[in-house]
């Protein structure tokens, strides 16, 4: 069990679990997939999480930062995080190697309500590292394929080599009632696929809003235009769901860094429908 606060019986919520890096795989030039195993067997067995939840990873000596869990708990293949080099913590984490220790606090936040989506057609729209929190959504649906309707996955990136989860594309594309559309901002000599912005691809494919849910994550500008495109296709705001990235320091609703309007992204989110977001006092 996590260490107790002396004399109180309570657990110090800032104290991370220790974990050992089991794998480090280059996904793109700036993204690595980090596989972790929690050191304490009791915590390892009880650590449960859902797609959309996140955890803080510590690079000891530098600090910690929040990352979406990109693995699926039920697969019991260890905890996976896609770490993109954007700041000091992510750079330090990328320097680590299998066998090294990191800290982990979590899981935090709400999750994509996949149980509510049973029987619905699912449209997954991800840009860049925004695919990381969507990957467990896709894989959970694939593991229970019969429970869901058709799935359309639109995955965009700056360039072909920035498509982070390429090793899984064949599995996704070949799954029943599943279509995978890839697009890049700039192609290269080997690229024969679409060279278009994600919102443009959405506009071209025109997914039906009938009995459908669109789940999107990516850079703010992509989200803005994707949202406009989906609304044009008849999607109501409650049918469009995203996960908000935000500055966070504690994950406990205390540091107030992720406060947006009357919501705390770390506790009320990070998953929100645009119907919920439209009711925020402050619009990001």
């Amino acid at each position: 069990m996590p260490p107790e606060v002396e004399g109180t019986g309570a657990v110090d919520p800032f104290l991370p679990y220790l974990a050992t890096i089991r794998s480090m795989v280059d996904l793109t030039p700036d993204v690595k997939l980090m596989g972790l195993e929690l050191d304490d067997p009791a915590i390892r067995d009880s650590f449960d999480y859902r797609p959309g939840q996140f955890a803080f990873l510590s690079a000891f000596g530098v600090g910690e930062a929040p990352f979406g869990l990109t693995s699926v708990a039920q697969r019991r293949e260890g905890l996976e995080f896609a770490v993109r080099r954007v700041g000091t913590v992510t750079s330090a984490l990328q320097e680590l190697e299998p066998g090294d220790k990191v800290g982990l606090r979590g899981p935090f936040g709400n999750h994509f309500p996949l149980e509510d989506y049973r029987g619905k057609n699912i449209i997954i729209i991800g840009g860049g590292i925004g695919m990381a929190p969507l990957r467990p959504v896709i894989n959970t649906i694939l593991d229970r394929r019969a429970d869901y309707g058709d799935m359309l996955i639109i995955n965009g990136a700056r360039s072909p080599q920035d498509l982070a989860f390429a090793p899984e594309f064949d599995t996704w594309a070949q799954a029943p009632r599943t279509r995978l559309e890839l697009t890049v901002d700039r192609g290269d000599e080997g690229w024969t696929g679409s060279v278009d912005l994600v919102p443009t691809v959405v506009g071209k494919l025109k997914p039906s809003s009938q009995n459908a849910v669109a789940i999107t994550c990516g850079p703010p500008i992509m989200i803005r235009f994707t949202l406009a495109g989906l609304r044009e296709l008849g999607f109501a705001d409650h049918q469009i769901v995203t996960t908000l990235e935000s500055k966070m320091k504690c994950g406990l609703g205390k540091c107030a860094r992720c406060n947006v309007g009357d919501k705390y992204i770390c506790q009320d989110g990070p998953v929100f429908s645009f119907e919920q977001i439209s009711r925020f006092v402050e619009q990001f």
């Binding site: 000891f60 000596g61 600090g63 910690e64 860094r257």
Partner: peptide
């Protein structure tokens, strides 16, 4: 006002997780 920041502080081989006002 209770907003805060958290970072690690390393000094002469000693590492601490610090919280400061923000």
């Amino acid at each position: 006002c209770y907003c805060f920041d958290i970072r690690d502080h390393s000094y002469m081989g000693r590492m601490e997780r610090m919280r400061t006002w923000e």
